[in-house]
Amino acid sequence: MNIEIILFAVLALVAATSSVMMITRKNAVISAVFLVLNFFALAGLYLLLNAQFIAVVQVIVYAGAIMVLFLFVLMLLNTEAEHQLFIDKRGIKFFAIFIAAFVFIEIAFLIFKSNPSKNLSPDQAASINSGTIQTIGQQLYTNYLIPFEVSGFLLLAATIGALVLAKKKFE
């Protein structure tokens, strides 16, 4: 058995288990811990696909920045009240199950219908190259310059918006 298959099995198992653990925990902070673990396993899977830049960015952005902010909020808020909401109202529970089943069927349909490996090139060297930061940087600043700048501009606008919302009185 080659090493890639072993790694894939381990990482996939961790990813699947941690995501199930995440949605079944009662304590929101513990859920967040499992979500971080899940991000890690995903980053490992990206590495196996030769997408090293995405793997590292996955850890830096999701695990390192976004989840820290989530935890920040979760630790300071008392999440007991939200917990009560789902126990009391049975209607919400059934609605949630319905939505979950619908999304599950949708995703399963898409996975079995599409053929994601049809675009893969058999050339391994090209596939390793396309995951490097050099290639991604070159593509971003040439072929995808306008979308890249537009998304940068949007993020700037969002930052300013967040500042305005956070500061109640703007002197």
Binding site: V36, V56, V59, I60, G64, V68, F72
Partner: peptide
């Protein structure tokens, strides 16, 4: 000797927060 070594260091230091945050909580 990985070619994204600096990003690797940044990724790990950004995870350093967790040890302290979890300990605190």
């Amino acid at each position: 000797d990985v070619n994204i070594g600096v990003l690797y260091v940044l990724a790990l230091t950004s995870l350093g927060v967790y040890g302290i945050t979890f300990a605190g909580w």
